[in-house]
């Protein structure tokens, strides 16, 4: 668990790659876990298959990234809550289908921009990014298709989609904070994200949410190991079996 202790943005040292891999890997791991909770609960069979595909893509990305930072299982199952570096956005509970789609829309638009950027560079994430960018393009598409259908569907679906987008809006600012070892221009990424989001929302006949885009108590909180209450419960469930059998292999 060496990498997890480096929390503050210092000039990129030897630990920068593991730290960055951890941040991006935790995003993918945690969101994959949340999507996995949908299994058996999706609104229609076709969507069971679709959500599982996205969850599996993300889990694949998580495993590559965590392995860049250490042992994937040790990192996933033996870290405490405060050592996780994922965005607060991805740890938010599923809520209803619209809520999940809102989370998917916000995150996959961001992740797609990020992978595109990293795939074009020469950094340590370029090989993974080249593969992940294709997967994430599909995640964006899935989220966009549903945002448009729910936003411009029935009165009820519009209300729910609206509520999902509003509720998660305050977690979106954190995505563009600098992450040590991730060589992208956050401000530029954010401008493109806002433009793409605007485009999707107008197709869905929805107004962009209003209000602050960062949590009230600390900007960039998840990346610094400050999480929301539901995350602790999620980890308790995810880790309990592994932790109950120290040293066992599975």
């Amino acid at each position: 668990m060496t990498a997890t202790e480096t929390t503050h943005a210092t000039p990129a040292g030897p630990s920068a790659v593991p730290a960055a891999a951890l941040a991006l890997g935790d995003d993918a791991l945690v969101l994959s876990h949340r999507l996995g909770e949908w299994a058996g609960h999706a609104p229609v069979l076709e969507e069971e298959v679709a959500l599982a595909n996205i969850a599996l893509d993300l889990l694949g990305q998580a495993r590559v990234l965590l392995s860049m930072a250490g042992d994937e299982d040790e990192l996933a199952f033996l870290r405490e809550e405060r050592s996780f570096r994922n965005l607060q956005l991805v740890e938010q509970p599923n809520g209803d289908f619209a809520h999940t789609i809102a989370r998917q829309l916000y995150f996959s638009l961001y992740q797609h921009l990020l992978w595109t950027e990293l795939a074009a560079g020469q950094g340590p994430f370029a090989p993974l990014a080249a593969k992940a960018v294709k997967e994430t393009a599909y995640h964006v598409d899935h989220a966009v298709q549903w945002t448009v259908r729910l936003g411009d569907g029935t009165e009820e679906s519009t209300r729910r989609m609206r509520a999902g987008l509003d509720a998660l809006w305050k977690y979106t600012g954190e995505m563009f904070r600098p992450v040590e070892g991730v060589d992208v221009d956050g401000a530029a990424l954010e401008q493109r994200w806002l433009a793409e989001l605007d485009d999707v929302l107008s197709r869905a006949r929805l107004d962009p949410p209003e209000g602050p885009r960062t949590g009230a108590w600390r900007a960039g909180a998840g990346r610094e190991g400050l999480h929301t209450e539901p995350f602790g419960r999620m980890l308790a469930e995810m880790q309990h079996l592994h932790r109950s059998h120290p040293g066992a292999s599975w």
Binding site: L29, H33, G36, E37, A39, G40, E48, V49, A52, N53, A55, L56, L59, G60, A62, R63, L66, E72, D73, A76, F77, E237, M238, H240, L241, H242, H245, A248, W250
Partner: peptide, 17 residues
């Protein structure tokens, strides 16, 4: 949600899918 390794988690998700 409780699979004890990431490999097992991926396998189980793919199976249920």
């Amino acid at each position: 949600t409780r699979a004890p390794s990431l490999r097992r988690k991926a396998i189980l998700m793919a199976k249920v899918q």
